[in-house]
């Protein structure tokens, strides 16, 4: 069965022929569109390495059929920085050493962006840890990840002029 889907990826409208209905959003991004920044760690929704934003919400791209994202808006790690200017979460990950091998990092960052937009965690480190627990880091860079997300949250709320 051959389908054709249209979707927006990082703001760019794409029409993609889909020759195999089995293709997941993750494999679509990596093997068809060539956006390999999104990683495959477990392919079963158990590690979070493939986290992307689907219509603004963080999801696991590995458990999403490509066919079912027809008409949606997908943001991947490649769409986060504005040119050479890093997204505040990206910058904070570097500054606080929120990664080691880097493999889970793009998923961590997309998850953190999703977490901040959900707005539930605020500046509570315990809520950030819980909210980031869907992203496994085998290098265990968790102290740096938590610090980076807290820092990005702080910068975000300062720039919005709100206090949390």
């Amino acid at each position: 069965m051959t389908l054709s889907i249209s979707l927006s990826v990082n703001g760019e409208s794409l029409n993609v022929p889909l020759e195999d209905t089995r293709t997941t959003l993750l494999d679509l991004l990596r093997e068809h569109i060539g956006l390999t920044g999104t990683k495959k760690g477990c392919d079963r929704g158990q590690c979070g390495a493939c986290t992307v934003l689907l219509d603004g919400k963080r999801i696991n791209a590995c458990l999403t059929l490509a066919a079912s994202v027809d008409g949606t808006d997908v943001t991947t790690i490649e769409g986060l920085a504005q040119g050479d200017t890093l997204h505040p979460v990206q910058a904070a990950f570097i500054e606080h050493d929120g990664f080691q091998c880097g493999y889970c990092t793009t998923g961590q960052i997309m998850s953190a962006v999703g977490l901040l937009s959900e707005g539930d965690a605020g500046a509570d480190p315990e809520r950030i840890r819980e909210g980031m627990s869907g992203n496994i880091c085998r290098c265990a860079a968790y102290p740096g990840i938590t610090a980076a997300v807290l820092d990005a949250e702080r910068r975000q709320s300062e720039s919005e002029g709100t206090s949390v």
Binding site: T36, G37, L80, L86, F93, G102, T106
Partner: peptide, 21 residues
């Protein structure tokens, strides 16, 4: 110092083996 490969790793441009096509 922060990591020399930091920007590559936070932007998804660091190329791991399976990223080669």
């Amino acid at each position: 110092m922060t990591r020399r490969d930091g920007i590559a790793k936070v932007t998804g441009t660091a190329t791991y083996a399976a990223d080669n096509r």
